[in-house]
Amino acid sequence: ATNIVGKVKWYNSTKNFGFIEQDNGGKDVFVHKSAVDAAGLHSLEEGQDVIFDLEEKQGKAYAVNLRIK
């Protein structure tokens, strides 16, 4: 899925991951530091509006192509 809109539920910059809540009511999506770095960001803030693509690997969904809304 592409261009999914959501809000950062939480992001832990020490542990380098967090979760994004989808605006469409879907399951929360894992986001890793690598996606944050690829977006040219240092971190994510709770409540921040983002747009992302959804990829699945080994049955787990995660956010890629992250951008600030």
Rank of each mutant, 00 (worst) to 15 (best):
V36A: 05
H32G: 08
G47I: 03
N3R: 05
K27P: 08
N24Y: 11
A1V: 13
K15F: 08
K69P: 03
S13L: 09
V50I: 11
D37F: 15
I4R: 13
F30W: 05
T2W: 10
R67A: 07
H32F: 05
G59P: 04
K27D: 08
V31H: 00
V36K: 04
K15S: 08
I51A: 07
E21P: 01
K27I: 10
H32K: 03
V5N: 11
V50P: 00
K9H: 05
N12K: 14
Y62A: 09
L66M: 06
Y11E: 01
K27Q: 09
G26M: 15
F17H: 08
G25T: 14
N24K: 14
K15Y: 12
G18F: 03
E46M: 15
V64G: 06
G47D: 07
N65P: 00
D53I: 03
K9W: 02
F17S: 03
S13H: 12
K27S: 09
E46N: 14
K60T: 07
V29H: 06
T2V: 11
A61Q: 12
F19G: 01
A1S: 11
W10D: 02
V8I: 10
N12S: 14
S34D: 07
D23I: 15
V29D: 01
K33C: 04
V31F: 14
G25K: 12
H42N: 12
V50Y: 04
A1I: 13
I20K: 00
I51R: 12
I20H: 00
V36E: 01
E46W: 12
D28C: 04
G18V: 01
V5E: 06
A63C: 04
N24P: 08
N12W: 09
V36W: 03
I20W: 00
V31W: 02
H32W: 03
I68V: 09
T2L: 12
V36S: 02
A38Q: 10
A61T: 14
I51Y: 15
G25Y: 09
E56G: 11
A1T: 14
V50C: 04
L44G: 01
K9P: 00
G40P: 02
G25H: 14
T14N: 10
S13N: 12
K60G: 08
Q58Y: 12
N12E: 07
S34V: 09
D37R: 14
L44P: 03
V8T: 03
N24Q: 12
